[in-house]
Design a protein around this nucleic acid. Sequence first.
RNA 1: GGACAGGUGGCCGAGUGGUUGAAGGCACCGGUCUCGAAAACCGGCAUACCGGUUAACCCGGUAUCGAGAGUUCGAAUCUCUCCCUGUCCGCCA
Length: 424
Amino acid sequence: MHDLKIFREQLDLLRDGLRRRGALDALAPVLDRGVSLEKERRTLIQAVEERKAARNANAQEVAKRKKAKEDADELIAQGRALGDEIGRLEGELGGVEAELQRLLLEIPNITLPAVPEGGEEHNTIVREWGTPRARDGVRPHWEIGAALGIIDLERASKISGSGFVVYRKAGARLVRSLLNYFMDVHRDEHGYEEVWPPLLVNRATMTGTGQLPKFEDDAYATRGDELFLIPTAEVPVTNLYRDEILEASALPMGFVAYSKCFRREAGSAGKDTRGVLRTHEFDKVELVRYSTPEASGDQLELLTRHAETMLERLGLPYRRKLLAAGDTGFSSAMTYDLEAWAPGVGAWLEVSSCSCFTDYQARRANIRYRPAKGEKPRFVHTLNGSGLAFPRTLACILEHYQNADGSVAVPEVLRSYLGTDALR
RNA sequence: GGACAGGUGGCCGAGUGGUUGAAGGCACCGGUCUCGAAAACCGGCAUACCGGUUAACCCGGUAUCGAGAGUUCGAAUCUCUCCCUGUCCGCCA
């Protein structure tokens, strides 16, 4: 969310940002409305506060007279009239502020200068690692998984519905191995604090990271308790310090959290849904960082490297894609997608999305830090990225390491976790 | 789920309708003192918004005592709803 002041002080910057996303035409009326409402808001605030000041002075005077046993009836009548007027003006102000709030929620973050303008056709591959395996003779992971008895989609749909998966035997253990391996590396080598967050969170938390109110249809909600199942660990972890002011010396902070992720995928039926590519419930290790505004660019590179390291250690060929402005997520100022090659599916699979949100998320969640003693608090910059998402990583492993005899070699780094060097 | 007891500034803690943004203490920062330190003393020490000025400092105003609504000329203080915490009981991995 942007600061209200953007309508008054940084309109050109905002216009240009929207243009780069290709969203200016659609949002121009929102901006115009915002500018005039912002003015109206200030006018109303002045009117209200002027009367409140009068009311407070009046109340003091009443107190004084009462103490002196003097008559105050006239003042009390004046106070009552002021009160009525304040009530009326505040009602008006409330309406204006509510609409402003709604407008602000419709305006996406402004992307950083390094982000290419335009739509997804301007996405840029900025890094490639490894040699993608040829598709010839490679079966997709759902066939491999079924043959090995480690991915059971039929029974998953029986017990839960479509878009769910049961991992069995070595498949189940493989999930657990990824969890432990990822957590270990990010904690021990990359210096993240390990966090094990709740999967059910309240409305304020979902609102803090922007899932609500706009995307309520995408979230699973509990009946009767006003709790939501998290779509990513980003939600509880970023909200850890909601409404707090941090010490500058604490930054940057890094958190690594494993979680189940729950997504209704309301609008994406039929796209990339084979096998485990898109499910309603999946596992992911998430990296979250808080940084000072000055350092957030470097922090994005660092975070992205942390995620890439996992693919390199697993020996999976991948590429880093810098998303163009129009393809960059609503709250994000800059995003790299990491795509690993799945030779069986014959596609690059997004296994991580690393973003810098600048202060857009922090403002909404009210996460600040104090640069130095006595200075005013500033919003932190928040960043996050998967490190990594399990199902697609698992699919890539099965396909990339598939042998001619139907067995699958286990990546070196997972062997001690999995207790075997091959799945057969 | 039931019954009590609570939620006040970074922390502790006073305060039941009228100069209370809020006593006092602790912590922290600056100063005096000291060769230096401690102690003592003096001063400072929330956030947001609006306006004036705007380069910064600053000045005036408004709001905030868990959240929201209400009563009142006036609410930390009274009423209602909700949230959270603690203790006991019940249930339970």
